[in-house]
Design a protein around this nucleic acid. Sequence first.
DNA 1: CAGGATCCGTTTCGATACTG
DNA 2: CAGTATCGAAACGGATCCTG
Lengths: 135, 135
Amino acid sequence: MRKIPPSTRRSGCPLNASVEMVGDRWSLLIVRDIMLGGASTYAEFLNGHERIATNILADRLRKLMKDGIIRAVPDPTDGRKRLYRLTGRGIDLAPVLTEMVLWAAGHEATGNRALTQQMRDKKKFLTGIRKRWQA
Amino acid sequence: MRKIPPSTRRSGCPLNASVEMVGDRWSLLIVRDIMLGGASTYAEFLNGHERIATNILADRLRKLMKDGIIRAVPDPTDGRKRLYRLTGRGIDLAPVLTEMVLWAAGHEATGNRALTQQMRDKKKFLTGIRKRWQA
DNA sequence: CAGGATCCGTTTCGATACTG
DNA sequence: CAGTATCGAAACGGATCCTG
């Protein structure tokens, strides 16, 4: 085995925290739907991807809020609705999403060509995301 | 809601593909153990992180091989052993891991300071990873 | 009607024991 | 050492019901 600098050994690697987010089939897809799809209501998430069950959706929204990744605000134009918005921490997930998309795209040549093309200019893409969803 | 360029809408987003391959609690941790920890045998994975069950480990190794992220080669110095190595595709997961670590580190101030410090110079860090694990 | 809770059958996970 | 078998626990999914 090759030599590994000791500082890169596994101890206390903060990956575990993010694996809890990514290590779930739905959480990241919900974040994506907000960040890229502009979804923000319960109904939009439900119709968004391939049929998430209502109880699972409610559960993930709760967990994402508990983790400070999204927050719910009352819709100013329609009191009955709540809008789920990304927090700063949620917006900061953009690079992770980007790299996952680029990874899959780079090896499959399938999927949304325009989106991956945009993402390839990472700096510009991320700046755009931040500007769109800030505060 | 703000205007979203149509090309960024969700249709055919390759995120699904990556979520299917690494969207579970263990797969990415195994990749990490190879990439950062230099682990390469079944036993090393078992002792590596917080106690993965043997059947789960076997299952994830099988799936990671099926997905072309790792491959098993016979240990040249010990015929009984198999060494699990990253494929090119597996090495390409480094940016995803990096962003996940940076995200968690940026919001928790905990964990391996030296590692995240190294990762912050992304280009250099990724080049190092590639050089170490190539072919 | 939007957002969510509850019930229930099915699938997946994971700890332990065991095997080639 | 590198896995498989077993079996209970947890997560999932669908349908339905509840609440403001």
